[in-house]
């Protein structure tokens, strides 16, 4: 019974890991990665290390998720790239 739970948990982790790096939608990737962190902290509890589980839940799912979501928002927001006329001139001169 316990072995079944372990196999299911590891299978789920592998599946979420594959999903989070193969999603075309970045937002979905990040959400899946956050879910990965949460299930991973469950795995740490099963492996008898509650200290690591606490850190994983707070850092892996919390702080890393916030950082990743912020980056996705940044890349989606179509910020104006630095126009930097100097570099454009340099490029034209190189050509």
């Amino acid at each position: 019974m316990r072995a079944l739970f372990d196999v299911l948990l590891v299978g789920l982790l592998v599946w979420i890991a594959i999903g989070s790096v193969s999603q075309r939608k970045l937002f979905k990737s990040v959400v899946m990665f956050t879910a990965f962190g949460l299930f991973l902290s469950l795995a740490w509890v099963r492996l008898g290390s509650p200290d690591v589980a606490l850190a994983e839940a707070a850092i892996g799912a919390g702080v890393t998720g916030a950082l990743l979501l912020d980056a996705v928002g940044h890349m989606r927001s179509r910020v104006t790239p630095y126009p930097s006329p100097a570099s454009a001139e340099r490029r034209d001169a190189d050509a």
């Binding site: 890991a17 989070s20 790096v21 970045l26 990737s29 990040v30 990665f33 990965f36 962190g37 991973l40 795995a43 740490w44 492996l47 290390s49 690591v52 892996g60 890393t64 990743l68 980056a71 996705v72 890349m75």
Partner: peptide
Amino acid sequence: MHKVIGANIMGSGIFMVLI
């Protein structure tokens, strides 16, 4: 972003082997 998430997942896998 996929590369960064991939690096994170690599780390998690190694941590899992260690523990």
